[in-house]
Each structure stands twice: as structure tokens, then as C-alpha cells.
Amino acid sequence: MSDSPCVPHELSARRREILDAAVTVLADLGWRGLTHRAIDREAGLPEGSSSAYYRSRDALQQALLEYVVGFVAADVAELAAELERRPGDVEHAVTATTTTIHRWLEQSDRCKARLELTMAATRDPDLALRLTESRQGLTEVVDGILERGGHDHSGAVAATVVAAVDGVLVSALLQPPEERAAMVSNSLDLLLGSLLGGRPGP
């Protein structure tokens, strides 16, 4: 079987099953714990199943990266389309962006897996390059929000906002589950609302 990774909607049911299990393993055990054997156990599959689809660790890691990034890209595209329907509406932009971030936080394993990939990328230039490319879509969405609001919309400003959102996600994951949504809402309200002038800070 081919080791070529696919975007989420193109995957077979078995590949999705394997990669969903890989997301859980990565979220629970970290980068070093990501092994074919651990994935097979998590998925409840016979030993050797995941290696039949992704023969090497590198192939598995690349497929997992594209799988996780694919979900983020789909959410970002959906967010961009939503904002295009109400251009210039800063209040709506803040609310829609917050809703997207809430959805990421609710998918905690996927969120943790993306953060694990980000940390791994600090030690792997190739992985860092692929992750940087994947973040560009979200940066462009934020840049468009800033532009429509009449604010400074240099790439550096948008990139800083995206980096801050990652920080909010990490901080939220450190909170008890029942407190995470409120923290995200309050943090993004301050971050985006104050920056865009759509909502006053407390």
C-alpha cells in the first residue's frame, strides 16, 4: 500500500481509523510515544496493522501532520467564508473566530496533537517548514479581519495574533475542562476585541 498521505476527506475508513488512534496516542503519550504498536493498541487492531499502511515512522508522522493540519485548514476555510458573508462586521468577526477556537478546544486530543507537533517542529526544520506553511491560511484570515476593520494589517501583526491564539489554547488546556470555554472567550475578547476596536476590554 502507498505511504502517501492524503487530506482527511480523501482517506479510506481504515486510514482514518489509524490516524484517529495516532492523534489520541500523540495527545496522551507525546512525540516519543508515537509508535506503530501503540497506535494498533489504541485502535484495537492486530499488531502490524498501522505499519501495513504507513511502513516507516517518517511516513506515519507525515501522514499524521497532514491529517491534523487538514482539519485546521478546513476550519480556517470555513471561517474565512463566514467572514466574507459579513465584511467589515468586527463584532461578527470576533464571535465567529471565537466559535472556531472553541471547536478546536472541544476536540482536545486533536488540539493537543497539534501542539505536540508544534513542539516537535522546534527540533525538526522540515517539520517546522510544513507547519509554518499550514499556519499561513489562518494568518491570512486574521490579516483580512484587520484590513476590513481599517487597522494595521501587516503580516507581522496577523502572525502575532495567530501566535497569541496558540498561547490561549495552551493556557486553556491547563485549566479544568469546565473552565476552558470561559477562559478562551475572555482571552479572545481581549485579544481580538481590543485590537479591532469592536469590543471594549474590561
Rank of each mutant, 00 (worst) to 15 (best):
M1I: 13
M1A: 12
S2F: 08
D3M: 10
S4C: 08
C6T: 13
H9A: 13
S12Y: 03
S12I: 04
A13Q: 09
R16H: 04
R16V: 04
R16T: 11
L19W: 01
D20T: 05
A21P: 04
A21F: 00
A22L: 06
T24D: 07
V25I: 07
L29A: 15
L29D: 15
G30R: 09
G30Q: 11
W31A: 13
G33M: 10
G33P: 12
T35E: 03
D40P: 00
R41D: 05
R41K: 12
A43Q: 00
A43M: 04
A43N: 00
G44V: 02
L45W: 00
L45Y: 00
Y54C: 02
R55F: 00
S56W: 08
D58H: 13
A59G: 13
Q62R: 15
Q62E: 15
L64P: 00
L64G: 02
L64I: 03
L65A: 13
L65Y: 09
V68W: 07
V68N: 08
F71A: 14
V72N: 10
A74Q: 11
D75K: 07
V76N: 03
A77K: 10
E78H: 12
A80D: 14
A80R: 12
E82H: 08
R85Y: 02
R85E: 12
R86T: 08
G88E: 04
V90S: 03
E91Q: 09
H92I: 01
H92M: 00
V94Y: 01
T97Y: 11
T98E: 06
T99P: 01
T100V: 15
I101W: 11
R103N: 13
L105M: 14
L105T: 10
Q107K: 11
S108F: 02
L115C: 07
L115I: 12
A120C: 08
A120Q: 06
P125N: 02
D126E: 13
D126G: 12
R130Q: 11
E133S: 10
S134D: 15
Q136S: 09
G137A: 15
G137C: 03
L138K: 05
T139Y: 01
E140A: 14
V142I: 15
G144I: 01
I145E: 06
R148W: 11
R148E: 10
G150K: 04
D152L: 05
H153K: 09
H153A: 14
H153L: 06
S154M: 06
A156Y: 06
A158M: 08
A159I: 01
V161E: 02
V161D: 01
V162Q: 00
A163S: 07
V165Y: 09
V165T: 09
D166E: 13
V170G: 06
S171M: 13
Q175F: 09
P176D: 09
P177V: 14
E179D: 15
R180C: 06
A181Q: 15
A182V: 15
N186C: 12
L188E: 04
L190A: 11
L190Y: 10
G193V: 01
S194G: 07
G198A: 03
G198C: 04
R199K: 07
G201T: 10
G201L: 09
